[in-house]
Computed example of a mutant assay.
Amino acid sequence: MLATRYALAGLAALALAGTAQAQEFQPKQKGTLMLNVRATGVLTDADDPILTAAGAATGLNVDVKDDVMPTIGLTYFMTDNIAVEVIAGTTQHEVRAKGPGVDVAVHETWVLPPVVSLQYHFAPAAKVSPYVGAGVNYMIFYSGEDQNGFDVDLDDGFGFALQAGVDVAVKGPWSANVDVKKVFFETDADINNGALKSKVKLDPWVVSAGFGYKF
């Protein structure tokens, strides 16, 4: 599973950082601005029924494929422990209709899901500093391409996110980072001008690993 591979890769990076020879490092503190560059997997949980306009079951479900892309995050420390993070990145996802004997692509879209979160950082002056956070996101679908004669419309909208992660100081302003977010977001999908519809709970896991630099 992609999430497992990312978590293992992140843990390996942290293990290497943690076993490195002790060196001076820049701690997190009030006024610090941290830039994180990460490889990020957006792993959706969508498996929702496709209904007719009258609400009858079609026997088909929505399946949204995962994607992996680079992302960036900016974190500003308002106090030693409390920070605000903004992340940005974009991923491309294929939307399919699945059912007994059916597996067909209906749409492909790019998604821009910026997340703003308020974080609490434990032990900001320590080499290993975990954190938790919560925030909001706005899901934007763009550059959509319909497939196999279908006409699909997806609604943009707000969601909310929970977050957990850890920074491991490496040397000077550099650190290694693993970050996991659970984004809760639901969109209305209209297919063929409303002839078919689905309320799609994307609810993606956003799993990231990378490196940070403190300014």
Rank of each mutant, 00 (worst) to 15 (best):
D179H: 04
L2E: 01
N61V: 15
V152G: 14
A15G: 11
D190Q: 12
M139A: 12
A83G: 08
E24C: 14
V111W: 08
T58L: 11
D167I: 11
G31M: 10
E186V: 10
S117I: 07
G212C: 12
A39K: 10
P100H: 15
K181V: 00
L112G: 12
A126Q: 10
K181Y: 08
V84L: 14
F122Y: 11
L11N: 06
D66F: 09
Y138K: 03
G18I: 02
A46H: 05
V106W: 02
A17N: 09
V115A: 10
K201Y: 06
N148L: 04
A57I: 03
S129T: 08
G157V: 08
L74W: 04
L16V: 15
S175L: 01
L8S: 09
G194C: 03
V200E: 08
H93E: 00
N148M: 11
P204N: 00
A164L: 11
F150P: 14
F184W: 05
M78G: 06
F211P: 00
G101Y: 14
V132C: 07
A9V: 07
T52R: 13
A176W: 07
V170H: 10
P113A: 07
V180R: 06
S143A: 15
Y131K: 02
G159W: 01
N148S: 12
A126S: 11
T109M: 05
T75E: 05
A9G: 11
L43T: 13
E108W: 02
Y76D: 02
V206R: 00
A9R: 07
T40V: 12
A12S: 09
P114F: 09
G210C: 00
W205V: 05
A126K: 12
V170L: 02
G99I: 13
D153T: 10
R96T: 09
V111G: 04
E94N: 04
P173M: 00
G159V: 05
F160D: 03
N137R: 05
N177L: 06
F185S: 13
T109H: 14
E85T: 02
A53N: 07
G89N: 14
Q147L: 02
